[in-house]
Design a protein around this nucleic acid. Structure first.
Lengths: 138, 138
DNA sequence: TTACCTGCAAAGAGTTTGCAGGTAG
DNA sequence: CTACCTGCAAACTCTTTGCAGGTAA
């Protein structure tokens, strides 16, 4: 279970000191097979379940913002008051379940090829994000 | 220039009283050929340019939320601290210019057909929103 | 007159920041 | 020892709400 050395290495190689708090956040985010979608509040709740030491919101925000800058996390576009993050940083799309307020990955096989036929002079495409909102069908 | 009666009718038929403030907001939003994309702050600034009477932020928020509920405006998904609105309420997609922080409509001809091959039991698709982020190419 | 609307100020929610004490290297 | 990090509280931004005075019907 102690993959700690991997995370310590990951942090150190990014110029971030491997503190107790950051290692716990790393384990929660990256020590898993599936993609993890979360808000800061989700993350704070989850951390409280796996450790008795309290990690302050300020530290969580700082760490998540650092991870985002290093490219370890991706911010997802949703019109919500909260910011959603994704541990899957590859190009992919999402379902957003409006009842559960929850994101679900769509991989390349789930979506037909998207063709953008318009271009603007002096501008280039940085990313293409598809958000498919779903809700209970009854 | 006085299309006021059209807006008065529009408001009244939606159960909204045609006040001075709402008529001015209507004229700014709907008395134009092109789509208008804005944040509440953009709108407040624009209003200050066309009238000396101050319209308070509370009134602007109330009015815009009412218009959204009536289906006269659409909220656009962007990961931003601000909420973006669009006077084009039809199904369509957007460019988001990261330099200008500005939305640009993509109409159906600009985007190839989008096929969603995945479905979830008990859930149905409510909307499909494509956001293409662009930036200066230099 | 009655129900609704406006504007102000205060309250909320999410996020960021300043700073004193603590920890990694 | 020094630079960086944490936690607290305060500050900030965007948005909503309570309420007193104003306006439409």
């Amino acid at each position: 279970m102690s993959n700690n050395h991997i995370f310590i290495e990951k942090l150190r190689s990014s110029g971030l000191r491997p503190t107790k708090q950051r290692i716990k956040i790393c384990k929660l985010l990256f020590d898993r097979k599936d993609t993890f979608h979360f808000t800061i509040n989700d993350l704070s709740d989850s951390l409280r379940k796996i450790t008795l030491d309290k990690i302050s919101l300020a530290t969580i925000y700082n760490t998540i913002n650092a991870f985002k800058e290093k490219g370890y996390l991706k911010e997802i576009s949703i019109n919500s008051n909260k910011t959603y993050f994704d541990t899957n940083v590859s190009n992919h799309h999402h379902f957003f379940d409006e009842n559960k307020k929850e994101l679900i990955d769509l991989n390349d096989n789930d979506v037909g090829k998207i063709k953008i036929k318009k271009s603007l002079p002096g501008k280039k495409i940085k990313s293409i994000e598809l958000l498919v909102k779903i809700a209970n069908s009854n």
